[in-house]
């Protein structure tokens, strides 16, 4: 084990898992974006149809999905800042490990601000 590489940015540990999470959340957000542009564009050709689609966005199960989507967006956004700092900040690579946990901490904090508000909106109208 003595020769096991350690401290590289993308191999093993936090560096690798943040990269994996960044990809997974990115793909999830991308596919939501495709749907979201289409459902919003529907308003131009069928206003009543738009309201019908929005009604499905207000169900409890899609509401839970929205909560997950925002969690994914929060991680992807904050970890994106971490990546920028690794690339452009002189000490970025040195602190990438700490910055990952700052990302997680901030994401949890922002999520704690969002989730109760959204879930109350979702579940108080069922």
């Amino acid at each position: 084990m003595a020769n096991r590489p350690a401290g590289t940015l993308y191999r093993g540990k936090v560096g690798m898992w943040s990269w994996v999470l960044h990809r997974i959340t990115g793909v999830a957000i991308f596919f939501f974006l495709l749907v979201h542009v289409l459902d919003t564009a529907l308003i131009r050709i069928d206003p009543a149809g738009y309201d019908a689609v929005m009604a499905t966005y207000k169900t409890w199960y899609i509401g839970l999905g929205e909560t997950g989507l925002v969690a994914a967006i929060l991680f992807h956004a904050l970890n994106g800042v971490r990546i920028i700092l690794i690339d452009f900040w002189r000490k970025g690579a040195k602190f990438q490990n700490v910055m990952f946990w700052v990302v997680i901490g901030l994401a949890i904090l922002l999520f704690a601000g969002f989730a109760p508000r959204h879930l109350i909106n979702v579940f108080s109208h069922i």
């Binding site: 919003t40 738009y50 966005y57 207000k58 929205e66 925002v70 956004a77 909106n121 979702v122 109208h125």
Partner: peptide, 22 residues
């Protein structure tokens, strides 16, 4: 973040979104 705040955090959030809202 601005989009999410204006649409999901303010007022009734997701429940306010409809044709008239947009």
């Amino acid at each position: 973040f601005g989009h999410l705040f204006a649409n999901l955090m303010v007022g009734d959030g997701i429940h306010a979104i409809n044709f008239a809202f947009v």
